[in-house]
Simulated scan of single mutants.
Amino acid sequence: MTTMVQEQAVAGSEIRRHELAAFLRSRRERITPEEVGLPRGARRRTPGLRREEVAHLSSVGVTWYTWLEQARDIHVSVQVLDALARTLMLDASERVHLFQLAGAVDPTPAASCTGITDAVRMTLDQLDPLPACVQNSRYDIAAYNRTYSRLLCDLDAIPPEDRNCMLLVHTHPEWRSSIVHLEETMRLMAAKLRASMAGHLSEPAWKMLVKRLQTESPEFRENWERYEILANRSKTKQFRNPHVGLLNLHHTDLWLSPEHGARLVTYTPVDEATRERLEKLYLLAVS
């Protein structure tokens, strides 16, 4: 009986590898070079992207990626799966399918959003027009109210797996343009992430975030190599919102789950002009 179970497990694993290979090929072939910023070239015959192009864009070896499409029995880390999902422009359902075929658990906040109770959501809603959100120690944005959704960009338009303050401040043009003191903010946030990561050094989601930031942001690479450490603290921040103008805000963290780093982040106006502008922003968000 044990031998039969083992044989079934081996057969199931082989079927998943072949399905994964076919899935990757199908998604690779549907993406044009222009969509990922590559020249088409006059001699291109491959529909979509070449294997070496996917490997390069995902920062993995060409041989290794070729083996993956050949259904070889190789280990695939969650960091690589995340990179492939972004390179191949997978939507939420396709991303879930990719991780299931690989027999891996997706560590991104889009895959599992826990700890946001109805009471927490009600609190967020009641705080409008004060911007507020719930973040964890990795700076994933797990929930937010309507004013916060338009504070720095149209957050609803951001895929859930990319709703991370570290990613947004280093890679999202509209988010970056809304921060008055951008260079200082990036340096301080890298130092905060370094401090927070001390208790999560072996966790895939944390390593995946840092690798992505290092790949996509020269500013993060430079600040990360400084090895500065900074604890979370409340402070006054300035944002330049494209709809209502300059906002002067007090930033406050209210801890919901200290052991997991979950906190309610709130912004309150420093002056009357900011209070009025927040009210306008809220009306814009709900209209």
Rank of each mutant, 00 (worst) to 15 (best):
S112V: 06
G103A: 03
L168I: 03
S93E: 05
L155Q: 05
V134G: 00
L167T: 02
I179G: 10
R163E: 11
T171D: 03
P129V: 00
A142P: 13
A102D: 02
L101Q: 06
S178F: 01
D162H: 11
P129G: 00
I179L: 10
V96A: 15
A191K: 01
L182N: 04
G103I: 01
G103K: 09
L193P: 10
A102Q: 02
E183L: 06
M166R: 07
A111E: 04
W175D: 10
A111N: 06
A142R: 07
G115S: 08
V120N: 13
D106G: 05
S177N: 14
V169C: 13
F99K: 00
W175G: 02
P159Y: 10
D128L: 09
P109R: 09
A142S: 10
G115M: 03
S137W: 09
P107C: 10
M166D: 07
R194Y: 05
Y144G: 06
R138Y: 14
N145R: 09
L151F: 04
Q135G: 06
C153M: 15
D162P: 07
Q135I: 15
V120P: 10
R146A: 15
L130K: 12
R187W: 15
A111Q: 02
P107L: 08
R121V: 13
L193M: 07
A190H: 12
L101R: 00
A190E: 06
P173L: 08
I179E: 05
H170Y: 14
I116Y: 08
D140Y: 01
L182H: 04
P109H: 14
E183A: 09
D128C: 11
L98D: 03
R121H: 10
L155E: 00
H181E: 15
I141V: 11
S112R: 08
L98A: 09
D156G: 09
L168Y: 03
H181Q: 15
